[in-house]
Structure formats: C-alpha cells, structure tokens
Design a binder for these strands. Structure first.
Length: 425
RNA sequence: GGAGAGAUGGCCGAGUUGGUCGAAGGCGCUCGACUCGAAAUCGAGUGGGCUGUAAAAAACAGCCUCCAGGGUUCGAAUCCCUGUCUCUCCGCCA
C-alpha cells in the first residue's frame, strides 16, 4: 500500500509509475474523495468536541442534582448529526481504501522500464552449460525411469499437477531442502521458522496476494483460511502489527514449507514434469530492515540464493525484472534462472524482491530507531532460496549420465547417506 | 465438540451500581539531581493513529483508540449483541 500522503502530493508521479508497470488504474476519484474526507472530518470533529464538553457538563449538573433536560435534548440532535457524518466519512474511507489497496508498488529507479518479460535485463551469468555427448532427457523421463517420481499415481490420487516423490526421489527432496536450510542458517545468518501452511485473509492482504489475486489461491471452504502460496505470507506477517526494536534490525528468517497455487490461467503451460505444480516445497528467505539498508540487503539476498546454485554447480543467470514484469508488491525484483536442458533455456528458480514499505504498511510492521524515536515502517524483502522442485529438476537434468543414472552433487551427498549416484534398479 | 473464566499502556495490574479515565499503582525505560563513578534515593517525563493551523519540520489544538466489529445512551474501559484469541475442566485425537 502506498502512503496516502505520498499519493496526494505526488499524484502525477504515481500515475506515471503505474503506466510503466502497465497497471491500468483509474485514480481519478482519489483526489476528490481525499479532499472530501478531510472536509467532513473537520466538520464531525467539531461536533464531537461539542458533545464531549457538553456531556461532561451534564455529568456535573446531574451530580449537583440540577436538571439538564434542555442540554440533553440538544445533544440528542448533535449525536444524530454525528452519526450521519460518521457514516459518510466511513463510506468515503472505504472507497479510498479500496483504491489504495489495489495500487501496486512503485518501481525503484534502478528497475528497467519495459512492457513485459522480453525487456528484462540480464545482469549476470554463472557456470558452464553442460556439454552432453548424448541426447539429454527431460527430468520427467529421467525420474520415471529411475522410479523416483510418480506422476501417474498422483493423478489418480489427487489430479494433475501433483506428484509423489518415491524412494531416493523422496530422499533427494529432503536432502535438497536440508542442504539449503543448513546453508542459510549456518552461513547466511537466517533464523529458521516452521510456519503454518494455512493463513487467514488478513495476512494475504498484508503481503499483497489479496484482494487482487484471489483466483491464484486455494481457499478452505466456509472459512477465512487459505493454503499459503509461499512461506513469504506467514513469515512476513509474523511481525504484523508490531513495533520492532531498531537495534534488532535487520532480521533474517528462512522457512521451509509446502506452497499451494491454483495456477489459474496457466493451463497448458509446463504441463510435463515438476516445474509447475499445485503443491511444491520451497525454502524461503524473508528480511526486515531499515529503509536505508534494503537495497544492499536485496543484493545480499540474491547472493545467498546464488550460493545454493554455485554449491550445487548448476549454471544460472540473474535477471533484473523490468517494470512491466514486476509483481504487485515488489519495488524491485531479481529473478534467478537455472539452466534446464529440456527447455533449452533458463527457467526461474528464485525470485528475490524488495517490497520496501509496501507490505510493511499493509501488515503494519514498524520499528523504532531508538526508544524515543517515532515508529517508522520497516522494509521487507523476500526471496526463494530456492524452490526445491525446480532444483531437483535441474539436478536431474544437468547431472544425468549416458546410462540413465544421475550423479548426486557433491554437497548433497552427506544428506543422501553418502550416496553419489542414483541408478536404475 | 461440551462447560466455565478472561482479553486494559513496553510489562504487571486497578477500574465492572455508566459521568474530568488515555486510564490509579508498580515495574521498565528516558532525562535531571545527588556521586569520583555506580547502586540506592529524589524530581520530571514516557503508547499509537488521524485532522487542522500549513507545503513540510518543530510546536499547539481537536478527534479516535482500554481484543475486533456493531448496538443502547446526552455520555461507555464500564451495559447489550456478534466475532477472534487465551486460560481451566470434560470429551476426542497425532
């Protein structure tokens, strides 16, 4: 959510920023509503002041046993008038809130201006692409042949876009997750949280998935609960409605969780394999920091995510998303894309965003620089570190051998009981 | 799921026959005095949001805020309704 004062005073600037994002929003009503609200507030506050002072007087008179009937009658009218005006103000405020809550974040000045993903800017490339001397297979074929992922039975048990990991596949899933967690906890300074996988709508508004993107979520019937689409939601909201101590910032949390996405509107995309699932696991990184340090923290977070791929020795590139490709809450986002031979291209495996104070304002997360200072909104960041399913796909494809087996990356072996290879039975 | 109790400021905790209650008292914290310094003691201060004076800061004034949302009333922390959460007991369960 934008600061209402900022919007009021930088109206044209905001409109331009939204145009760059391709967000077609009409803000025309805003200024009028805003002005009207303040006019009405002055009016009603004056009346409330009168009511407060006179009511106090009535109390005093009654204590002395003096009849205050005239004053009470007068106040009846005042109270009615107040009720009427209060309703009007409330209605206006709802309209203003409706507008504010649907405005996406303003892109940072270092974000390239562009209409869509074709105008994203590659900022880094790492690693050598595998030079196969045989025809590499896509991960779903490798996995089925090794009997480590079962697509068919998941379809039977649940439906499309679900899988069972099986045997060494299931172990690999745990290994990848534990490797990532240990790295972030022990070397990058993150404190692990195991979050609820179900959150209420308020939390989803806090991080920006609601109210605009409800169709992407799984909602639990007849409740206010949703399955989380990412651990970013519970972890960011962990500090909602709190005022943090400035000395404790920056705060780093990581969380391993399942994520649930309806994938509405992506029918037909990535239908094979484990790239696009309704349920997948992910290690998420979330940071809370002071405004002046958030961009430096974003760079560090990207490095933390990159480190996972470097240690796994998987080739990747880093992309600076352009204005037209930014997510709703993000002011700046780097995507990390891993090399996937079956796609003959790079595929997103992490997305690291600085949301500045956009989520903090929605979720009301503040901090005090010193015990005497006024509260300020923190900046929040989030990034995948990494998506586990896509990492497994990348490992299977990049580490496949001519005989159909898959070598296990060095750093994962301790997590696989020392195993160095997954072979056919 | 059934029965009961509760939710007050950073924390503890008064206030529940409605009327100077934004809220006693204590702790904590900040500043000052005392001290070579510290402790102890004494004094002062100490929530948040919104609006106006104003374009902004300091300041001042007003409004809102005692879990949330409604209601009764001239007036609600106090009364009524709904919801959320916490605790105790019973049942069930990993």
């Amino acid at each position: 959510m934008l600061d209402i004062k900022y919007l009021r005073n930088n109206f044209e600037k905001v409109k331009e920023a939204l145009r760059n994002r391709g967000a077609d929003l009409s803000l025309d009503d805003f200024l009028k509503l805003d002005e009207n609200r303040r006019k009405k507030l002055v009016e009603v506050e004056k009346l409330k002041n009168k009511r407060n002072t006179v009511s106090e007087e009535i109390g005093k008179l009654k204590k002395q046993g003096i009849d205050a009937k005239d004053l009470i009658d007068e106040m009846k009218n005042v109270s009615e008038e107040i009720k009427k005006l209060d309703d009007e103000v409330k209605q206006i405020e709802e309209q203003i809130h409706e507008i504010l809550i649907n405005i996406p974040n303003i892109p940072h000045k270092t974000v390239p201006i562009g209409a869509d993903e074709t105008q994203n800017v590659e900022v880094k490339k790492w690693g050598d692409l595998p030079g196969f001397k045989f025809k590499p297979k896509p991960h779903w074929e490798i996995a089925e042949e090794l009997d480590i992922i079962d697509f068919k039975r998941a379809g039977k048990v649940t439906g499309s876009r679900f899988v069972f990991y099986k045997g060494l596949g299931a172990m690999l899933e745990r290994a990848v997750a534990n490797f990532m967690l240990d790295l972030h906890i022990k070397e990058h300074g993150y404190v692990e949280l195991t979050p609820p996988l179900i959150v209420n709508s308020n939390s989803l508004v806090g991080t920006g998935q609601l109210p605009k993107f409800e169709e992407d979520l799984f909602k639990l019937k007849d409740t206010d609960y949703y399955l989380i689409p990412t651990a970013e939601v519970p972890v960011t909201n962990y500090y909602s409605n709190e005022i943090l101590n400035g000395d404790d910032l920056p705060i780093y949390h990581c969380a391993y969780s399942a994520c649930f996405r309806s994938e509405a509107g992506s029918a037909g995309r990535d239908t094979r394999g484990i790239i696009r699932q309704h349920q997948f696991t992910k290690v998420e990184m979330v940071k809370f920091c002071k405004p002046e340090e958030s961009y430096q923290e974003l760079e560090k977070m990207v490095q933390n995510a990159e480190r996972v791929l470097q240690l796994l020795e998987l080739p990747y590139r880093v992309i600076n998303l352009c204005t037209g490709d930014l997510g709703f809450s993000a002011a700046k986002t780097y995507d990390i894309e891993v090399w996937l031979p079956s796609y003959d291209s790079y595929k997103e495996i992490s997305s690291c965003s600085n949301c500045e104070d956009f989520q903090a304002r929605r979720a009301n997360i503040r901090f005090r620089r010193t015990s005497k200072s006024k509260p300020e909104f923190v900046h929040t960041l989030n990034g995948s570190g990494l998506a586990v399913g896509r990492t497994i796909a990348a490992v299977l494809e990049n580490y496949q051998q001519p005989d159909g087996s898959v070598a296990i990356p060095e750093v994962l072996r301790p997590y696989m009981g020392g195993l160095n290879k997954i072979t056919k039975k």
